[in-house]
Amino acid sequence: MTATLPAPSRAASRSHAPLSRLVAAELRWVLRRPRTLVVLGLLALIPVAVAIGIAAAGAPESGRGPGLIAQVAGNGFVLPVVALGLALTLLLPLAVASAAADAVAGEAAAGTLRGLLISPVGRMRLVVMKSAGVVTVAVLAVVIIAVVGMVAGTVVVGGPGSLITLSGTTLGFGEALGRIALVATWTVGQLLAVGAVALAISTLTEHPLVVLASVLGGMIVFGVLSAIPALEWLRPLLLTTGLTAGTDVLRDPLPLDGLASSSLRALVYVVVGMTITVVRMRRRDA
């Protein structure tokens, strides 16, 4: 191993910059990108748009409405859960995939990756640094939707300061916050799976668009595959299968099966994606 690739180990031993400084530099780089800020700002508009829509339309007559959105009426704390669920189908994966596309393929396309690769930074540290950028975007996106959702839910929709579950029970403020924190954490986990796969694709191409197209195309193909009854055996393998499990936090008592199995599935995707990323980055010629 060392015989074929002497550069990384020598580079690693030569690096003196602490990892935190590298990560901080990457985060500054990611967060100063106008497109990152625009994407995060647009994501914040999702809960606001839902809240205004609900407040303007009022509660649907019989409570019947488009799925979960009807649950938001008069029950503001449901809004962050609903907004995260809406965004998780396509928009959050898009945000994470674009961050991952910029992280490696974008730098390759701009010609700046070469500089990184020949710099005295170990390849593993490079992967950690690049992953930290993607994770940060995922966490920020989820936190923004959750917080804006809670504020918009309280201010625009209004609510009793508690959460009415789908099971007809009422959760107090603290428990409601806990449920929202749980769904936010779970959503980040699902996004990390998308991010790891996107990062792996990012190391395989020099075109950021390929990463975006692969991830979004993959999400759509997964959705189509899980709709085919004959391919039912495939469903446990598809990341999209568990994406609706976030709704479970609105049930009482809280069923953890769906959240746990989808998180484990996401973990498997993370392992596969990061393995490919690490192998590709270590083998990559400057």
């Binding site: 498997v268 392992v271 192998v279």
Partner: peptide, 23 residues
């Protein structure tokens, strides 16, 4: 050898997945 290692990791992850989801 490195590719074999990567393939091994992917297979192991797949096996974990199969176990997790009960295939």
């Amino acid at each position: 050898r490195r590719w074999v290692g990567a393939a091994g990791a992917v297979v192991a992850a797949g096996a974990v997945a199969a176990g997790v989801v009960g295939i």
